[in-house]
């Protein structure tokens, strides 16, 4: 059997607690192909962020393994990039410098100074943020900060892009525009994406597959739904599409009938 690009195998995560180990994730199995867009959805506290942090290398694995492109993950590394929910831009650096920091670190020996500058600008252009390159994070809106966060993540050319509820803190209109941007970028670069979300519409619109998690403790994957909608997807056309509506219903049914929090 050919190995998947990103493979999560019998993963279990426990944190030491006051009354023995606190089991957060148990026996999580998930195979993701190169270029695939996979969303993970579940109620708050079900461990979906923990799962993403394990793939990022920020949380240690207790049992099982995570294998990315034939090598096991046990620490953070530039082959995976994370877009954090609260953008995590460094406030003392400009938008450009935030992206440049990542570019300089990852391409220090591979690109010349000039190439690194152009690469940082290219990634800012990809998220339509060149106009604010010299602004500080405090001077731009929440949606713009998240765009810069995405540019910083893309700039290191990760094998897998990890999005941790990237649009959770944004208003509906801004969120829709950013979702469209993410779809455009995914169409252009064909990245492998793993996204955490609690928004059913967002999951159905963006994903190739939706992974639904059971409630914790010892959460695991309850169901995986394939969203076989052709790309590019258009928000307006989809709103009445039977496949899209069926996917929404399936996820809603899982979350609120079978895993009611």
């Amino acid at each position: 059997m050919p190995k998947a690009f990103l493979s999560i195998e019998a993963l279990g995560v426990s944190f030491p607690g006051r009354t023995g180990a606190n089991e957060v994730l148990a026996n999580v199995n998930l195979q993701i192909d190169e270029g695939e867009f996979v969303s993970i959805i579940g109620h708050s506290g079900c461990g979906k962020s923990t799962l993403l942090n394990v793939v990022a290398g920020l949380v240690p694995i207790t049992t099982g393994a995570v294998i990315l492109d034939r090598s096991a993950i046990d620490a953070p590394g530039p082959d995976r990039a994370v877009v954090f929910q609260n953008h995590s831009l460094l406030p003392w650096l400009s938008v450009y410098e935030n992206v440049r920091l990542a570019v300089d670190k990852v391409f220090a020996s591979k690109k010349s100074r000039r190439e690194r500058h152009e690469w940082a600008m290219e990634n800012l252009a990809l998220v339509q943020m060149t106009h604010a390159a010299d602004k500080r994070p405090s001077e731009i809106s929440g949606g713009m900060k998240q765009r810069v966060g995405i540019a910083r993540a893309l700039a290191i050319q990760p094998k897998v892009l990890l999005l941790d509820e990237p649009f959770g803190a944004l208003d509906a209109l801004t969120r829709a525009r950013l979702q469209d941007s993410v779809m455009e970028i995914h169409a252009k670069l064909a990245n492998t994406v793993l996204m955490i979300t609690h928004d059913v519409d967002e999951a159905a619109l963006l994903s190739d597959r939706i992974v639904m998690m059971t409630n914790g403790p010892a959460a695991t994957i309850g169901e995986v739904l394939t969203v076989s909608l052709p790309r590019p997807r258009k928000r307006l056309e989809l709103s009445a599409d039977p496949t899209y509506l069926a996917a929404r219903v399936a996820v809603l049914e899982f979350l609120y009938a079978r895993q009611a929090a």
């Binding site: 920020l58 953070p76 530039p78 954090f84 003392w92």
Partner: peptide, 24 residues
């Protein structure tokens, strides 16, 4: 958050000190 940024970029301890810790 800043520690996570530093870790995902795999900054060395020295880089972490100058680029994250001191300015923060």
């Amino acid at each position: 958050d800043y520690v996570n940024v530093s870790r995902t970029l795999s900054l060395s301890p020295l880089e972490h000190f100058w680029k994250i810790l001191l300015p923060a």
